[in-house]
């Protein structure tokens, strides 16, 4: 590698500062005693105490977790099966499905959100079911999570050594035994990575949740959005700081895990 120039280091420092400026200001202001305005008026933990007493925030946190857990469980099962099938079997429309799988990843999320909203309102007129709420949100989240899980699991399977399964068969294992004792254990890192990504995507999602939520199913991002619309209050900065800390911790953990496994 070439020796790097001062210009490169300086511009990298400026760009990192730019990337972290919004995160930094939220964290700093969550500890700022000032209620309004941009000036620093001393350190306080007051906004965190306000937050812990905020019943709305606590219920939004519960909703966010419930939504993420339910949708991740469903999407991981369906996505793993889909990724496995796409890797193992060739069928009519295989190419079409492989392409379509990337579509939910790339199209604007608001398009997906309003298309679900339309579907739900149509189904509601016909059946009286599909009132907007936690169920409709779970259905929507699973829909954007499945492709991510399937793509990751399929990539993991594509990287496996086929000799391992052939050896199991040669040694007398039947299809079922080979799957559960050889193939599935080898798939697990991919399944876990997919589930982890699905979980994060669900916790982070605002747009699909916003359009498919009902009264009483407010999640943390929806709560932040409506608070910002009314004017930012310091306890929202405290909430955001906690969320930033949680996601930074998750990002660092995943990076460390990947490095140790030398993936």
């Amino acid at each position: 590698m070439h020796a790097r120039s001062k210009t490169l280091t300086t511009s990298a420092a400026v760009i990192y500062a730019f990337l972290y400026a919004p995160i930094a200001i939220v964290v700093v202001f969550s500890f700022n005693a000032a209620r309004h305005g941009a000036g620093w008026q001393g350190f306080t933990l007051h906004w965190y105490r306000t937050l812990l007493a905020n019943e709305q925030a606590l219920s939004a946190a519960r909703n966010s977790l419930l939504l993420a857990i339910c949708s991740t469980v469903i999407a991981t099962v369906l996505g793993t099966m889909l990724g496995f099938g796409l890797n193992r079997y060739r069928f009519r429309g295989h190419r079409f499905v492989s392409r379509i799988l990337y579509l939910p990843v790339f199209i604007p999320d608001i398009v997906m959100a309003v298309s679900l909203l339309l579907l739900y309102s149509l189904l509601r007129q016909w059946s009286g079911l599909f009132q907007l709420g936690m169920t409709t949100m779970v259905l929507g989240h699973v829909t954007f999570q499945i492709p991510f899980v399937a793509i990751i699991v399929r990539a993991r399977l594509a990287g496996l050594n086929p000799a391992l399964e052939e050896a199991a068969h040669d040694l007398g294992a039947n299809g079922w035994q080979t799957f559960w004792r050889v193939t599935f254990p080898l798939m697990i890192p991919g399944v876990l990575a997919g589930a982890m990504l699905a979980f994060t995507l669900s916790l982070d999602d605002f747009v699909v949740s916003f359009f498919t939520s009902g009264p009483g199913s407010t999640t943390l991002p929806i709560l932040i959005y409506s608070s910002v619309k009314r004017g930012i209050t310091p306890d929202i900065n405290a909430l955001s700081t906690l969320m930033i800390a949680a996601s930074a911790l998750a990002a660092v953990t995943v990076t460390l895990l990947q490095r140790n496994r030398k993936v």
Binding site: L19, I23, G39, I244, A250
Partner: peptide, 29 residues
């Protein structure tokens, strides 16, 4: 690894938070 992780961490941070923060960064005061 550190330099790379520093690029990834903001991606894991909620977009809504990184966006409303600019209201404070670009606000009148």
């Amino acid at each position: 690894n550190l330099a790379l992780t520093l690029v990834v961490v903001p991606l894991w941070t909620n977009l809504l938070i990184r966006t409303y923060a600019w209201q404070m960064l670009l606000g009148p005061e």
